[in-house]
Structures are given as structure tokens and as C-alpha cells.
Design a protein around this nucleic acid. Structure first.
Lengths: 257, 257
DNA sequence: ACAGATCCGTATGTCTGACATATAACCCGG
DNA sequence: CCGGGTTATATGTCAGACATACGGATCTGT
């Protein structure tokens, strides 16, 4: 009942017979093709559902199911009303990060992803990002980092500290100038952070974090790549200890509804 | 017309009024919640659409639109027929990679992600993966790598070489023992590879690649972390030159169709 | 002439009810 | 005991209707 016959299939399936593809999948395929090839440009409006239905020779319900899939992948957005309809909206970094965060969380429950893997990946990505940031940062990047480092973190609310913390790391990633690093690192950071946020512990913790951030910022601003990486590594190693104390599986909930 | 009022919102929105959430979104939300909290276990079957409809107090069509969204996110799979229905299927690494590949491709068109970013990220991730693989590999990992290194690559078809190449890098990532590295690196590799596959050039290229792979494999098998990383770096630097010659934007297509 | 209230067309959102079709399980005869 | 046809149960698909939100055109009062 649980075996998945299609898993890890060798590419032997030379049979040129195709399983019937459901109508809404075919509509989805074709619309997706139009969007990804750029035939439909970003922001452009698709024909309304009734027209699409008659164009594809299917019912409106079928078209709508295809549109829901496209919307779920952030390829379109739909709006009601007169000026409404379905508009092409290509995905953003934030969309992708959000998706990744959710899916990695789920995956880590099932396939048992260890805390160590999160920390390891994070250290690799963020340390490198700090290094790059030192040589590539713009003035705007620095400004953004500055705004997330404060004089007295204890004067802030827990949520506010949370946001500042998130902002700092996000800013460093952004300053790295490498979109792919952002996409990879952001969700990992978010998952760790989400778990941490529920159990703030030592009162010296926020101060230490803020100080570390300032140190990293200074190195980046000075263009000191080695220093930036070193300080980031040091910071992350400190955090490692904290996470190892409070860790629990991302999506886990205490039993008993 | 294009402004997105909810983008990068500061957490100021304390207004507790909520925009009406469409019925199919509410159904989706609730089903998703049931799945992600583990209340519905992997493999478990949801009630049939008619029952869901009456449970949620909506029509079957509405339920179906919600199910399409869940299916698009690989949270369920649906099957026709007697034993059919909707089954919970948590996402796999492959699902996530596939999604990422598609979305990064799209993103790189719009937001202009440079080739350099791909190469930079790949070098970081795969070099580190090779290092980890040297100390963490299992016998199965080694076997998998061995099978993708051949005696005479020129004896293979272009597609076969393509598959072997993909398999080798995938095996190294797998041997790193870090799922997050796999998730991050796999799509980046795939995008680069997809573009390369359309323009094979120098006939010495496949031989060189195969030799490099063997060298990396040997170092990993010997448990030589430094060597594995060094050889992988060297290999990727060689590839860098190739990519820089043939690169074109991922999703671009020649006009006229 | 202009600002504001009102009406109206157009799109998605939702419901109802029906039939088509794939599939697993059951039943029955050899 | 086995093989083949039947049936029950799901999803897949269709058609038509009404609800609802939104943008713009139209009407109105000062």
C-alpha cells in the first residue's frame, strides 16, 4: 500500500506510449509553456476563463483547476471584478524562499534532517556571503545592516529583536550580490530562527548577538573579507551552542491535540 | 496597476481586519494544516471529494480547486478509480529540486542572474560537498560514483554522457550526507548542465571531465578531504571556462515559433 | 463645470446536478 | 482453485446558473 513504483526510475522507459494526461494538466502545461517561454510577458493579462475554456475546448471548471495550479506556483495571480482576470506574475526570491522553508521543514520531519546539517549548511553559506559582502557591498547594503544593529538590544521587544536579527542576516546575504546564495541560505536561516524564537533563554544572548553583528558589519564596511568571514564564523559557532541546547524538530507538535 | 501593497511590509499591520479569503483557499489552508502538523499521516487517504465538500460546507468544485493547489505543492496525490482518492505524499528532495530549478530559471531571466553567480554558488557548494564526502561516504556512495565514471566516455552517446555526468555530481552531493547541500546545489547544477547539453563542443571535453571525475572519486574514496576539495575545485574551474564560452540565459528561446 | 453618488458591465467565485471513466474488489462459474 | 466478467466507488469532466467584487461610465446636485 505504501510502495511507490515510480521512485528513482532508471531512464529505461523507452515505451512511447503516454498515460492519458488529464485535461486540466494539459491546459496547465500549455499555459505554463506560454509563460515560461516569455510568450506571455510579466504583467500581461490572460483571456478570461470563458474564452480560455472555449479556446482549449474544455469546460470552465477545468480551466479553473489549471489556473489554480499556476497560481500555486506563483506564475499567475487572479483578481475579481471588472479590471480583473489572470495576470502573469513571475516568482520572486521571497516566493521561492517561502516555498523552500515550508518544504524543507516538512522534509526534515520525514527524512530526519539533523540539526547539524542545518548548522553546517548555514555556516558554509553565510560565512561565504560575509566574505563576498566585504568586497561587493553597496552603500544601501551597509545602511540596511546598520539599521538592524542597535545600541541597546534589551530595550527592544522580543519580536523586535527577532526582526532585527533576521534583517541583519538577510542584509548580509543580500550584500553578497549572489541571488542563489540568498535563495539557499534564507530558508535555512528562517527555520533555525523560527525554532529559536520560541525559547529565548539567557538574557545576555541578545547583547552578545548584537555585538557580534556590529563586529561583522564593521569588517564588511572596511572591506575586510577575511575578517568578515572570520567574525561571521565565530558568530555562527556561538549560535551553534545555543541551537544545540534548544533544538527540536521543526514542525513537531506535542501530542494530544 | 502593478504595485504590490503587501510587498516587504513592515510588521506594522496591526489591523485585525482580514480580507475575505476565498473558499477554496480556506479549504486549502485547513487541509494543509492537517497535513503539515502530521495529523494526517503520510500515505493516509483523505475523505472523498463529496464528503469533504459537505464537511467544509462547500461545493465539490471548490474542494477540487483546493486539492489542485495541494497537489501542485506535492502534498497530496490523487488517483481515480475504486481504491483511489487523495493521498498524503510529503515532498521529496527531488520534488524540491525540480521546483527550484524551474523557478530559478524563470527568476534568472527576469532579475538578471548572472552566470557568475551560478558558478560561484556551485563552486562553493560542490567543493564543500566533496570535502564532506571524503570523510562521510558510505560504500553505496562510492559504488554510485564508480558507475558514473567510465573507461572510455567517447564510446557513449551524448545523452548517456550527460546522464553519467549528472549522476557523478549528484552522487558526490549525496555522499556529503547533508540534505540541504543537495537541495541547494542540485538545481544550480541542473540549470548549468541543461544549457551545456545543447552545445557540446570540443571532443576532448568528455575525456577531460571523466578523468577529473575519476581523480575526485579516488580522493574521496581514500578519505582525503583536502584532495577531494582541491580536485573538485580544479574541475569546476575548468568547467567555468567552458560555461563562459557557451552561456546563454536559461529559459531564452530563439524568436519565431 | 466639477465633485460625489449611482448604475452597469465584466470578470472571477461558487453552487447544483449530471454523466464519463478508471480501477479495485467482488462474485461466480468452470 | 483459478479466471473473467460485473459492480461499486472514486475522480474527471461537462453544462448552466447565480453571487459578488471591482472599474468605469453615467447621472446628479451644487
Amino acid at each position: 500500500m505504501n510502495d511507490e513504483p515510480t521512485s528513482s526510475g532508471q531512464p529505461d522507459e523507452k515505451s512511447s506510449i503516454h498515460r492519458v494526461r488529464k485535461a486540466y494538466e494539459q491546459v496547465y502545461d500549455q499555459l505554463r509553456e506560454l509563460i515560461t517561454t516569455g510568450e506571455l510577458e510579466r504583467g500581461e493579462r490572460l483571456p478570461n476563463e470563458t474564452v480560455l475554456a472555449s479556446d482549449f475546448g474544455v469546460s470552465r471548471g477545468t480551466v479553473r483547476e489549471a489556473l489554480r495550479i499556476l497560481a500555486a506556483q506563483n506564475l499567475i495571480r487572479t483578481a475579481k471584478g471588472a479590471g480583473g482576470g489572470s495576470f502573469v506574475t513571475l516568482p520572486t526570491v521571497d516566493h521561492i524562499s517561502e516555498f523552500l522553508q515550508a518544504n524543507i521543514s516538512l522534509l526534515s520531519e520525514v527524512e530526519d534532517v539533523e540539526l547539524g546539517e542545518f548548522l553546517e549548511a548555514r555556516e558554509l553559506l553565510e560565512a561565504f556571503a560575509a566574505r563576498l559582502a566585504a568586497s561587493r557591498h553597496t552603500e544601501a547594503d551597509i545602511e540596511r545592516m546598520r539599521q538592524s544593529v542597535v545600541a541597546d538590544p534589551m530595550a527592544l521587544s522580543v519580536e523586535s529583536r527577532f526582526v532585527h536579527n533576521k534583517e541583519f542576516h538577510s542584509a548580509v546575504l543580500g550584500a553578497s550580490g549572489n541571488t542563489l546564495l540568498c535563495i539557499s541560505a534564507q530558508p535555512i536561516f528562517s527555520i533555525l530562527q523560527t525554532n529559536l524564537s520560541r525559547t529565548e533563554l539567557d538574557s545576555r544572548f541578545p547583547v552578545r548577538v548584537n555585538d557580534d553583528h556590529r563586529e561583522i558589519l564593521d569588517a564588511i564596511e572596511a572591506g575586510d573579507a577575511d575578517g568578515a568571514e572570520r567574525h561571521m564564523r565565530h558568530h555562527l559557532e556561538y549560535l551553534r551552542g545555543t541551537y544545540e541546547k534548544i533544538w527540536r524538530v521543526p514542525g513537531a507538535v506535542s501530542p494530544g491535540e
